[in-house]
């Protein structure tokens, strides 16, 4: 559990946190409403004797009791998308509507992109951006399997994304991924303060650009799957100082337990309004770890 000791004072029930981090993640998937509906899908899985249980907090999320959900025929047909439970939070907080213009700035491999496309009912425009050529292949493949016809894939450096206006922008930023340790324990060994600070230098201008691209009244959601405040509150508070007329809105997803964002960390003051952000720890909802901030442009 390298690199987690530093969070002893900010994580409630630290022992349970460490214990949860050592367990593997439950297998979860999202029902793709572009191709099926919830009742039909659950009926099919039940008939096929695939043990599944809907999430208590999100009616399109499913816990699956099987090892290889990728081998399900429903996966081949794009009726489900295998996706970690807590990562379904960012699109829900983003709350995209059909007919809107939405940008997913760091989109690959496309789990959140396809969730957004289905929330938009395949209408409007969803720009799925990712600069890495290698990751764009998986992004395109996932969008095709989901049946998304409202997605264009672009490969800009998000920090210099062309000047266009969007109703909503998601920045699901590259991060040290500590919250994904239940899937891949090696992320903890790779963590260092230097890596967090290196990524912060990328995360800050990404979020700043996202705020500039939002229309007045538009929404920007910033999320990571790491616990490091350097990549979370330290990014959001910096960006709020850079772009005028942007305010934080409280993140609240009914049925999910969370902790407020940090007001300070190791002597750095982030401001009281950071409490409006949400930190999801693995032992709270038996998920991966996650951070989400919601910003509104005035």
């Amino acid at each position: 559990m390298d690199g987690l000791e530093r969070y002893r004072d900010i994580v409630p029930e630290f022992g349970s946190f460490l214990e949860a981090m050592s367990r593997s993640l439950p297998v979860t998937a999202r029902i793709n409403t572009l191709k099926t509906d919830r009742d039909r899908l659950i009926f099919r899985l039940t008939a096929a004797k695939v043990p599944c249980r809907p999430f208590s907090w999100y009616d399109l999320g499913l816990k699956l009791e099987l090892e290889k959900p990728g081998n399900l025929i429903e996966n081949l047909m794009g009726h489900i998308h295998v996706q970690e439970e807590i990562s379904m939070v960012s699109p829900i907080v983003l709350d995209p509507k059909p007919e809107e213009r939405v940008l997913d700035m760091c989109a690959a491999p496309g789990s959140k992109t396809t969730q957004i496309a289905s929330m938009m009912e395949n209408r409007g425009l969803l720009v799925a951006n990712d600069p890495a050529n290698t990751r764009v292949a998986s992004l395109r493949s996932n969008c095709e399997r989901a049946g998304a016809i409202n997605v264009v894939v672009t490969r800009y450096d998000g920090r210099r994304f062309p000047s266009q206006k969007f109703d909503r922008v998601l920045v699901d930023a590259p991060c040290t991924g500590q919250g994904m340790a239940r899937k891949d324990l090696s992320v903890l060994g790779r963590w260092s303060l230097k890596r967090s600070l290196g990524l912060q230098r990328l995360q800050r201008p990404l979020l700043k650009r996202a705020m500039e691209l939002a229309k007045p009244g538009g929404t920007v959601v910033y999320s990571t799957c790491t616990f490091a405040p350097e990549e979370n509150e330290a990014v959001v508070s910096w960006a709020l100082d850079q772009v005028r007329r942007v305010r934080l809105e409280k993140v609240l997803v009914k049925g999910l337990e969370s902790c407020p964002g940090l007001v300070e960390w190791n002597g750095s003051l982030f401001g009281d309004e950071m409490e409006k952000c949400a930190r999801y720890y693995p032992h709270q909802n038996d998920t991966g770890g996650f951070f989400v901030a919601k910003l509104i442009k005035e």
């Binding site: 395949n122 209408r123 409007g124 425009l125 720009v127 764009v136 395109r140 969008c143 095709e144 049946g147 998304a148 016809i149 409202n150 997605v151 264009v152 894939v153 672009t154 490969r155 800009y156 062309p162 266009q164």
Partner: peptide, 17 residues
């Protein structure tokens, strides 16, 4: 196949499905 009557003014890798 694409959801809108016109493609956006961006350098696109793919447009819809």
């Amino acid at each position: 196949i694409f959801s809108l009557p016109e493609i956006p003014d961006l350098r696109c890798e793919s447009v819809g499905l």
